Amino acid sequence: MSVTVKWGTERLSFALPAPSTPLSHVRKALSDYTHLDAFKLIYNGAILKDDDTPISAYRIHANSTLQLIPITAAPQPQPQLQPVSATEAAVVTQIQAEVASVRQNLTPDLNRILQTQVSDKKDELRVGELLLQALLRIDGISPERSWDQARAERKAAVKEIQSLLDILDAHKAKSAAARR
């Protein structure tokens, strides 16, 4: 009997420990496997916080699915974007600022990852999560239908950031295939 742990795009299967096993033992096993120092575990929408509590108290049972969310130790500062203004120029500036931040802060990290021979899962995960966050911020900007320039900038930004995510995913798949 086992439990499934979702970690990004991966699905990990672990043997279900005894119901009296404290959560700290599950965390330790996951940490040893993933090489992550800090992460959140989520089950049925709740964050599992108390490591001394037995897994039975969280109602974890055979065929349960846990979500593992890594916590990055030193998140890169992201520019504070102003609330969407009522002008097209302000929206275009907001989109351009987000793309410039990705180019300045994340593209060099992505290039470094692509050039290394040994994959660093933590770094790949961190860069992937930050790219996804940038993509979600761009997606949250909704220019009015009549703002053709803002809509075109948004579309180009989404394509650029998505292409970086695609490149990272292809690199991760290639690294995983090489390890087999």
Rank of each mutant, 00 (worst) to 15 (best):
I161Q: 03
H25C: 13
D32W: 09
V91L: 01
Q133C: 06
L131P: 05
R137N: 11
V102N: 01
K159R: 13
A178L: 08
L165M: 09
A18S: 09
G8P: 08
D52S: 03
K155Y: 02
A150G: 02
E144V: 03
K159C: 10
I113C: 01
Y33T: 13
S13E: 15
I71S: 13
P70T: 09
K172V: 14
R151E: 07
E129Q: 06
P54D: 03
S13I: 14
T93E: 06
L164I: 02
I42L: 06
Q149T: 09
S85E: 05
M1V: 05
D37I: 06
L48Q: 07
L68Y: 02
Q80P: 10
T21K: 14
A156I: 09
E98A: 04
H61Q: 10
T21E: 12
K174C: 09
Q149E: 08
Q104S: 08
D37Q: 12
L168M: 06
L131K: 00
N105G: 14
I47M: 15
Y33F: 06
I95A: 02
L36K: 15
N105T: 14
D169R: 12
R59K: 10
S175L: 06
E124Y: 00
K122G: 09
L66Q: 05
N44H: 07
L125V: 12
I138K: 04
L81R: 09
P83R: 00
K121A: 10
V127N: 07
I71L: 15
P83E: 00
D51M: 13
F39L: 14
V5M: 11
L130F: 03
V99P: 10
V91T: 06
P75T: 02
R179L: 15
I95H: 07
E160A: 05
R154P: 04
F39H: 08
K28I: 11
K155V: 10
Q76N: 02
E88K: 06
A150R: 01
R112S: 14
E129I: 13
L23A: 14
E10L: 13
S85V: 04
Y58K: 11
D51N: 12
D123M: 04
I161Y: 04
V92N: 04
I42C: 09
L16C: 05
E98C: 12
D123W: 01
A176D: 05
S85C: 09
A97L: 11
L110F: 00
W7K: 02
I71V: 15
S24K: 12
E124K: 00
V3E: 06
A74P: 05
I71T: 14
A152D: 05
E153D: 11
S119V: 02
L41I: 05
S101I: 13
Q67K: 04
A74K: 12
N111K: 07
E144S: 10
E153Q: 03
Q80C: 13
D139E: 12
F14V: 07
A46T: 09
V3Y: 01
L164K: 00
D120V: 00
